[in-house]
Design a protein around this nucleic acid. Structure first.
Length: 800
RNA sequence: GGGAGUAUAGCUCAGUUGGUAGAGCGCCUGCCUUACAAGCAGGUGGUCGUAGGUUCGAGUCCUACUGCUCCCACCA
C-alpha cells in the first residue's frame, strides 16, 4: 500500500539516487533505434543561478523524457561554459581585482577555481530538479580537449579561407580592454549634450558650426562632411576648416549620409567616433587617427589632454572651448548609446589587428539556414532572419583577454608571416610551445599570438563538443545535424547564429533540425531575471525544496514557449494540488488492484468508453509534444485526469467495492480499465512529474512490464479505439452531473436519494448497461427509459 | 525608421483544422461522499482591444487603427 501522505522530499531524493546508480539515462542506442540528440545549452558560469534556468532546462528535460517514452534513444549531454569574458568578469568582481594587474597564469588559475565552485551549484540544481541529462559525463569549454577542438576549428576555417587576420576598425571596450562582437552590444539611453562648436574657415574670420556629442574626438578629426544637395553649406565644399583649439586644418567633403536638417547640417568625421565614421573612413579613404588608447586614455594626439580618460577629457575640452569662445551653445539630449553587455561601458571603435570570421559575404547562405531550420515557436524564425539581414560587422573572434582558448598561431619575427600549429599537436599554447620548424624565411624567432578567442568561437562548437563525449573524434559529424537546439530568445542572434555559421563552414550542414525557444522568467516589475543580476527572492533550490521538483517542473511545463512570463507562485499551488490528486487517485485505484494481473476480459461499455477516451487523449498529447507544444499537451492531460477522477472513478466506485451486487466479471472489467488508464496516465505525466509517477509505477506496474524504471518504459500501446463510443458515455456523465446539480441546489448531501430519473436517449443500450453504476453513484430509486433525443429528467429528492 | 509578439472573466492565462466562449485562483452557496476537506458538488462573473471585411458561421482568417512588450537600426 502507498502511504497516506506523499513525502516528496524523501521520494524525490530516492529516485534521483536510483536513476544515477542505475544509469537510467545513459545514452545507449540499440541497433536501428532512432536517435534524438539535444545540443544542451551549457550554462554560462558567471554567477548565481536563477529560476529562469529552471524553466528553460525543464522544457528540454520534458522533451528528453518524452522522446525516451516514444522509444527513441535520447542523447542529452551536459556541459559548462566556463571560458571567456563572462567568467573573467565574475572573478574580477568577486575578488575585486583586474586581470591585467595580475600575472596571467595566476589569473587563469583563479578563474578555474572559481568556475569549479560555481559548477558544483549547477550540478546540485540539475540533480535535485530531476534532470535526466548526463551530469557525470560533461564537457567544459575551457578543458584541454575543448581547446583542441576549438583550435582545430580555427585552423580548419583558416584553411578554408573563412578566417582572416587584419588591421581593421573593431568594436572596443575600454573597460574590459578588448575587442567585442556586434552581438555583445546592448543599447542604453544615456543623457548627453549636443555641443555646437565653431570651425573657422581657413584664412577667414567666418566660421561653420559643427554640432557634436563627442568633443573629445576633436583631435582625431579628419574631415568635415556636408550633404552634396545642401545649398546652405555648399560654399564650404572644397575649403579647409580649422579644428577648434587644436588648430590643424581638415577638408570639407560631401556625402549623402549627412542629414541636411540635423544639427547644422555639418558633421565632423573622426576616426573613429561612431559607425558612420567607420563607413566614411572606408568610402573616402580617410586617414586614421587614434586619440585614445586601449584603456580609454587620451593619447599624445590630444595634446594637453593626454592622460585623461575619455569621459574626463570631454568636460575638459568643452571648458577650454568655452574659454576660447569657440562654443556657441549646448543642448542636452538623450540618445541611444551602444554599450558592452558585460560591463555597460560605451563602446568605442578602434583600429586593431584582429582575427575575423567572414560572415558578411555569406549572408545569403546563413539566411537560407534560418529558413531551413524548424523554429518552435515559428515566430522566432523572424528574429534570426532579421539579425542576419542587419549584420554590419564580420565576426571578430580575438579578445585581448586571458581566460580563454589560445590561437594556435605565432608570427615570424623575420618576415611577419603567420605560422600555424600542426593539427596533430593541438592543443597548444603559443606562449609556451614553439613552432617545430623554422619559418620559410629562415627565421627561428617567433612572437606568440597573445590574444585569446571569443567565448562564442568555442561555444558555437557545442554540437561537436557534446558529440565528442560519446562518439570520439571524427565520428561527430555523422550525428550532425543534431535533433534539437533549445535556448531562450536572447541567444538567437548569438549562440544560435554562431553555431549555424560554424556548422555551415565546417560541414556544409545545419547543426540541428529543430530549435525550441523559451521565454524569460521576469520578476514582478517585468524585468528580466538575469543570472548576473540576481533580482529574485527565491533561489531555484529554495523553490524546489519548498514545492518539490515535480511541482516546479509542472509550473515550467505550463509556460508557453517563447513568451516571457512573470514569476508567480499561483501555478505552484495548482501543481501541489495535482501532485496530491495523483497520489490519492493512485492510492485508491491500487487498493482494488492488490494481487490483480491484467488479462483480456470483455469490457463493459462504460469501461470501454474510458479507454477510448484515454487513447484519444494520448494521441493528442503525443501530437502536441512532438511539435513542442508542451504546455498544451499538459493542459489536455490535466483535463483528462481530473475528469477521470471526478467522473469515471465515481461512477465505477460502487462496482469495485461491491462485486456481490454488481458481479465479479463486472468488477474485473473496471479493474482492467482502471489499471490500464492509471498506468497510461503515469506514463504521460512522467515527463512532467518524473518522481511521483516513478514511485507509483515502481510500486504497482514495473514488475508486470518487467521495467527497471518508468522512464525506460514506453507510452501505453493501445489499439486505435472506436471514438464513437465517447459520445455515448458522455451522456451518462451528463446524467450524473444533472443529478449532482439538483442535489447541490437543494443543498443536500450527494448521498441523498433521488426518487426517479427519466432518461431519453438514442443510446439506451449503452446507458442501460451502466444502470447499476448509475443507480449507485446517484442514489437513484427508479429509472425509466425512452427512445429519443437525449434528455434526463431528475425526479424529487427523497426526504429522509 | 525596420521586424516580431501580445490584447479573452476581478487576477494569471489556455483556446488545436473557423462550428454553442474555457481552466486555475478569487468570490458566493452547499456537502465530512468507505482515495483525497491539501477534497467534492454547484453558482457568480466575458459586447474575446477598436473599426471594417471574407464566410451559412469569426476569439480564431484578411485590412486598418490603438495600447503594452521585445529585437534591430538610430551616437554627427
Amino acid at each position: 500500500m502507498l502511504e497516506k501522505r506523499y513525502d516528496f522530499l524523501a521520494v524525490e531524493q530516492k529516485w534521483q539516487d536510483y536513476w544515477n546508480e542505475q544509469k537510467i539515462f545513459k545514452f545507449a542506442p540499440k541497433k536501428n533505434q532512432k536517435v534524438y540528440s539535444i545540443d544542451t545549452p551549457p550554462p554560462t558560469v558567471n554567477g548565481k543561478i536563477h529560476v529562469g534556468h529552471l524553466s528553460s532546462y525543464t522544457h528540454i528535460e520534458i522533451m528528453a523524457r518524452h522522446k525516451r517514452m516514444m522509444g527513441e534513444a535520447v542523447y542529452f549531454p551536459f556541459g559548462y561554459d566556463d571560458n571567456g569574458l563572462p567568467t573573467e568578469r565574475y572573478v574580477e568582481k568577486k575578488n575585486k581585482i583586474k586581470a591585467y594587474e595580475m600575472q596571467r597564469h595566476e589569473f587563469i588559475e583563479l578563474c578555474l577555481k572559481e568556475a569549479h565552485e560555481l559548477e558544483k551549484d549547477f550540478y546540485k540544481l540539475y540533480k535535485t530538479g530531476g534532470f535526466s541529462c548526463e551530469l557525470d559525463n560533461t564537457y567544459s569549454s575551457i578543458s584541454q580537449n575543448t581547446q583542441k577542438i576549438s583550435q582545430k576549428s580555427f585552423l580548419d576555417l583558416l584553411e578554408k579561407g573563412y578566417i582572416y587576420h587584419a588591421e581593421s576598425p573593431v568594436l572596443w571596450c575600454t573597460e574590459c580592454r578588448t575587442a567585442v562582437a556586434q552581438s555583445e552590444l546592448d543599447t542604453q539611453e544615456l543623457e548627453s549634450v549636443f555641443n555646437h562648436i565653431k570651425f573657422y574657415i581657413e584664412g577667414s574670420k567666418k566660421f561653420a558650426t559643427v554640432a557634436t556629442t563627442r568633443p573629445e574626438m576633436l583631435p582625431a578629426c579628419v574631415c568635415v562632411f556636408v550633404n552634396p544637395n545642401d545649398k546652405k553649406n555648399a560654399h564650404l565644399v572644397g575649403k579647409n576648416l580649422v579644428v577648434p583649439h587644436f588648430g590643424f586644418s581638415v577638408p570639407v567633403l560631401t556625402d549623402d549620409l549627412v542629414q541636411i536638417d540635423k544639427g547644422s547640417g555639418i558633421v565632423m568625421c573622426c576616426t573613429f567616433g561612431d559607425n558612420v565614421d567607420k563607413e566614411w573612413q572606408r568610402k573616402h579613404n580617410l586617414p586614421i587617427k587614434e586619440c585614445f588608447n586601449n584603456g580609454g586614455i587620451m593619447t599624445a594626439l590630444a595634446g594637453e589632454f593626454k592622460g585623461m580618460h575619455i569621459s574626463k577629457a570631454r568636460g575638459a575640452i568643452i571648458a577650454r572651448l568655452k574659454e576660447e569662445d569657440l562654443l556657441i551653445k549646448q543642448e542636452p539630449i538623450i540618445h541611444a548609446v551602444a554599450t558592452h553587455e558585460r560591463c555597460g561601458t560605451p563602446i568605442e571603435i578602434a583600429v586593431k589587428k584582429q582575427w575575423f570570421i567572414d560572415v558578411l559575404t555569406h549572408k545569403k547562405q546563413i539566411y537560407q539556414a534560418g529558413l531551413d531550420l524548424n523554429w518552435y515557436p515559428e515566430s522566432m524564425r523572424a528574429r534570426f532572419l532579421n539579425w542576419v539581414e542587419n549584420l554590419q560587422w564580420n565576426w571578430c573572434i580575438s579578445r585581448q583577454r586571458f581566460f580563454g582558448v589560445s590561437f594556435p598561431v605565432w608570427f615570424c619575427e623575420g618576415c611577419g608571416k603567420v605560422i600555424t600549429a600542426k593539427k596533430e599537436d593541438l592543443p597548444i599554447n603559443p606562449l609556451i610551445d614553439k613552432p617545430k620548424t623554422a619559418c620559410a624565411c629562415g627565421s627561428k624567432n617567433f612572437t606568440p599570438e597573445y590574444d585569446v578567442m571569443d567565448t562564442w568561437a568555442t561555444s558555437s562548437l557545442t554540437p561537436q563538443l557534446s558529440l565528442d563525449l560519446i562518439t570520439g573524434e571524427g565520428l561527430s559529424d555523422t550525428m550532425i545535424p543534431m535533433s534539437l537546439r533549445p535556448n531562450a530568445h536572447d541567444n538567437i542572434r548569438v549562440w544560435d547564429f554562431y553555431t549555424v555559421v560554424k556548422s555551415l563552414y565546417h560541414f556544409g550542414k545545419l547543426p540541428w533540425t529543430d530549435l525550441m525557444i523559451s521565454g524569460f522568467i521576469t520578476s514582478g516589475d517585468g524585468g528580466k531575471l538575469g543570472k548576473s543580476k540576481g533580482n529574485t527572492d527565491l533561489t531555484p533550490q529554495e523553490v524546489i525544496s519548498k514545492y518539490s521538483a515535480d511541482v516546479t517542473r509542472y509550473w515550467a511545463g505550463g509556460l508557453s514557449l517563447g513568451r516571457d512570463t512573470c514569476f508567480a507562485l499561483d501555478a505552484f499551488d495548482n501543481g501541489k494540488k495535482l501532485l496530491n490528486k495523483i497520489w490519492n487517485a493512485s492510492r485508491f485505484v491500487l487498493s482494488f488492484l492488490e494481487g490483480y494481473k491484467p488479462r483480456a476480459v470483455k469490457l463493459m461499455p462504460i469501461d470501454e468508453w474510458l479507454i477510448a477516451k484515454f487513447e484519444k487523449l494520448q494521441s493528442k498529447f503525443i501530437e502536441f509534444m512532438d511539435r513542442y507544444d508542451i504546455a498544451l499537451a499538459l493542459n489536455e492531460l490535466e483535463k483528462f485526469f481530473w475528469d477521470f477522477c471526478d467522473n469515471y472513478i465515481e461512477i465505477v466506485k460502487d462496482r469495485l467495492y461491491k462485486p456481490e451486487i454488481h458481479g465479479e466479471k463486472e468488477k474485473e472489467s473496471a479493474q482492467f480499465s482502471a489499471y490500464t488508464v492509471l498506468n497510461g496516465l503515469l506514463k504521460l505525466f512522467s515527463p512532467f512529474m518524473p518522481h511521483i509517477t516513478e514511485e507509483v509505477y515502481m510500486h504497482a506496474f514495473a514488475q508486470d512490464e518487467n521495467a527497471k524504471s518508468l522512464h525506460m518504459s514506453l507510452y501505453a500501446n493501445i489499439k486505435k479505439q472506436d471514438y464513437s463510443i465517447i459520445e455515448k458515455g458522455n451522456e451518462l456523465v451528463a446524467i450524473v452531473q444533472e443529478i449532482r446539480k439538483k442535489k447541490s441546489l437543494a443543498q443536500v448531501s450527494m448521498k441523498a436519494k433521488i426518487a426517479s430519473v427519466a432518461i431519453k436517449s438514442n443510446n439506451l443500450d449503452f446507458i442501460k448497461s451502466a444502470e447499476k453504476d448509475l443507480i449507485a453513484v446517484g442514489s437513484i430509486e427508479a429509472i425509466t427509459y425512452e427512445k429519443g433525443e437525449f434528455f434526463a429528467e431528475i425526479g424529487e429528492i427523497v426526504k429522509e
